[in-house]
């Protein structure tokens, strides 16, 4: 129980990853698969954000001398690097979603459905 409460942010990440994977594996609707993919990606992004935080952490900028007495010494900074990485990864994620949705639209035009089972049936018939 202590493990769950003390590390609740990791558990949230784990649950989100599993929800995403489950949605991708079980749903036959292609759009739902894309949504699952997004949940999965976002969960991993959260993992990286979580590891960068620090209790009482402040912005990673050089603090002017006159305000320095407001902070403990040494100043607890939040690690900015994971944030930068995740900004890049979000861009990648959005591009993937865009390509995936474009493909779903093309699939819908070509097959008249976005259901995986029906597409498989149409493929088998042809």
């Amino acid at each position: 129980m202590e493990l769950i409460i003390a590390k609740h942010y990791y558990w949230i990440v784990i649950i989100l990853v599993l929800i995403g994977l489950y949605a991708m594996m079980t749903s036959t609707n292609l759009v739902k698969k894309v949504i699952g993919l997004n949940i999965f990606q976002t969960a991993v992004f959260l993992l990286l954000i979580v590891i960068s935080t620090k209790e009482g952490g402040t912005l990673p900028i050089l603090i002017p001398y006159e305000y320095l007495h407001l902070f403990p010494d040494p100043v607890p900074y939040v690690n900015p690097l994971p944030h930068v990485m995740i900004l890049t990864a979000i861009v990648v994620g959005v591009s993937i979603t865009a390509v995936a949705l474009a493909l779903v639209i093309r699939i819908n035009i070509a097959y008249g459905t976005i259901d995986e089972d029906e597409i498989a049936r149409i493929e088998q018939d042809s």
Partner: peptide, 23 residues
């Protein structure tokens, strides 16, 4: 199109696994 979509889903899972490892 379907092949590309399936590749996209699996390829992204693979890439995200790499990202988890990097994290």
């Amino acid at each position: 199109l379907v092949a590309s979509f399936n590749y996209l889903i699996l390829g992204t899972i693979g890439a995200i696994f790499v990202l988890i490892g990097v994290a």
